[in-house]
Amino acid sequence: GFPHNFQETTYLKPTFCDNCAGFLWGVIKQGYRCKDCGMNCHKQCKDLVVFECKK
């Protein structure tokens, strides 16, 4: 597997964290999205993600 390539992201529609399944709250920059596989997560979850990037 590969490490994720997370970038701070502004979501335009309701989005949930792929790590904890919690809602990504806020208006802008609600969470992080992996540029390579599209995984979404909270800032506090991005260092805890157990799934490797599937590129």
Rank of each mutant, 00 (worst) to 15 (best):
G26N: 02
K13L: 12
H4E: 02
G1Q: 08
H4K: 06
N40Q: 12
H4S: 00
C17G: 00
V50K: 04
L24I: 12
L24K: 05
A21W: 07
C37S: 02
C37A: 00
E52G: 12
C34I: 01
K35R: 13
M39S: 09
H42G: 06
N19P: 06
F23C: 08
F16T: 05
N5R: 08
K54S: 09
V50R: 09
Y11K: 12
E52H: 11
T15P: 03
G22H: 10
G1V: 13
P3F: 15
L48A: 13
E52V: 08
D47V: 09
C34M: 02
C45L: 00
F16Q: 06
K13D: 02
I28T: 09
Y11V: 06
H42P: 01
P14K: 02
G38D: 13
K54D: 07
F2G: 05
T10L: 04
C17L: 00
T10V: 00
N40Y: 05
H42I: 00
V50Y: 06
H42V: 00
K13G: 05
E8T: 06
M39P: 00
F16D: 04
F51G: 14
F6C: 09
K43A: 12
K54G: 05
Y32Q: 03
D47N: 05
N19E: 15
K46W: 12
E52L: 08
T9I: 07
K13H: 13
Y11M: 11
K13I: 06
K55D: 03
V49G: 09
C17T: 01
C37K: 00
N19Q: 05
T15F: 04
K55S: 14
V49C: 07
T9H: 12
N5A: 09
T10Q: 04
G26Y: 03
C45E: 14
C41K: 09
C34D: 06
N40L: 04
M39R: 08
G31Q: 00
C34E: 01
L12N: 01
F6P: 03
M39Q: 12
F51E: 12
F23Q: 07
Y32V: 13
Y11R: 07
N19R: 12
L24H: 03
K29D: 02
F2W: 03
V50D: 07
L24W: 02
G1N: 15
C41I: 13
T10W: 11
Q7P: 00
K46T: 11
E52K: 11
Y11E: 06
H42F: 00
K43W: 03
G22R: 10
C37P: 00
F16N: 08
F23H: 02
